[in-house]
């Protein structure tokens, strides 16, 4: 297999990313210093996948990564705020092997810290004085809240449809991915068609990301508890497929679902088959996502501009990495 060589664009994006200070500026005299707490919990140790995607997609359509630094930072802040709030809802004690904010302080502190991150994210976007960017931020927050709300309603329910599961995935994961693409498109003042095609790409990527996450829920290498979603009463794509493939399992499944008991009603073979099916859907979606990028390339040419071929190659690498990721 051909070894991929880091391109000059990748170096450029990495440099740009390294210029972003992903810490919260100290502002005010709140004790304990909420900013320090945030820096030491939700903002620490992340892969910065979303800021990277924002800069990369920007490069793809011809926006200088340096112009997107505040956007990328805001996106990471919103993502981190959602993690802070998520940990409260899930009563999580650990994130990335470190104590969560709510565990270190209290639920109230964690909620307030998340809120603070959202205000800082808004401030970052305000610097651009671009209403469309602000609208996108608002839409993303709206979707994140709706997604979380739907997830609460779906907890302990094993009768979810794939549509339910994918809708939550889109709102909770895909909405931020969508914003990563929309932000550069707004700065580029892209036409409607480019926006539509990019939205379609980001939707597919968001769904892929979540589906892979659902598979990783059953991989020892992921560093998470085996079948964590099942133990916490959250049906995911793999467990949904398991139930679809083996209807007779439902009774036993429901007996232990969400009870935090490591009793698993499936066999290794059944689990592996379900995971293969979900991975098959992932592969199909990636192929569709590739079609979307081809369509953007064609459309750009027809409008007299060109997408960046190096960035396109990097996006392909990113898509492969999403599919193959192990954490």
């Amino acid at each position: 297999m051909k070894q991929y060589q880091p391109s000059s664009l990748r170096v450029e994006i990495d440099n740009a990313l390294s210029q972003i200070d992903f810490s919260v500026e100290i502002d005010g005299s709140r004790k304990p210093l909420v900013e320090e707490l945030i820096d030491a919990t939700v903002l620490v140790g992340g892969k910065r996948m979303r800021p990277h995607l924002c800069l990369l997609f920007g490069a793809y359509i011809g926006v200088d990564p340096m112009e997107l630094l505040d956007c990328a930072k805001s996106i990471e802040f919103v993502h981190s705020a959602s993690l802070a709030h998520d940990d409260v809802i899930d009563e999580a004690k650990l994130r990335r092997s470190k104590k969560t904010l709510n565990e270190k302080t209290s639920n109230i502190h964690a909620v307030l810290a998340g809120d603070l991150l959202l205000t800082r994210a808004t401030r970052g976007i305000l610097k651009y004085q671009n209403n469309a960017l602000l609208e996108d931020l608002s839409d993303t927050l709206d979707d994140l809240v709706t997604g979380e709300w739907l997830q609460l309603e779906s907890r302990y329910r094993s009768d979810l449809s794939m549509k339910n599961i994918e809708r939550i995935a889109y709102l909770k994961t895909g909405s931020v991915m969508r914003w990563c693409c929309l932000a550069p498109l707004r700065l580029f003042a892209a036409d409607e068609v480019t926006i539509d095609l990019s939205l379609e790409w980001s939707r597919l990527i968001g769904l892929v990301f979540q589906a892979v996450d659902d598979c990783l829920d059953f991989e020892e290498s992921s560093g998470k508890r085996f079948a964590q979603d099942y133990l916490e009463g959250q049906l995911n794509q793999v467990t949904h497929t398991l139930l679809q493939n083996n209807p007779s399992m439902r009774g036993e499944f429901e007996k232990h679902f969400g009870k935090n008991e490591p009793v698993f009603p499936w066999t290794a073979m059944e689990l592996s088959q379900a995971m293969d099916e979900v991975r098959g859907v992932v592969a199909g979606r990636l192929s569709l996502a590739n079609e979307c990028l081809d369509a953007i390339d064609r459309h750009a040419q027809s409008r007299g501009w060109q997408t960046n071929p190096e960035a396109r190659q990097e996006l392909n690498v990113l898509m492969q990495a999403l599919e193959k990721r192990t954490v």
Partner: peptide, 17 residues
Amino acid sequence: PSEMIQTDPQVKSVAFK
């Protein structure tokens, strides 16, 4: 048909499985 997608500016496409 498994999914509706937009890979063409003018018209929606449908993925079949």
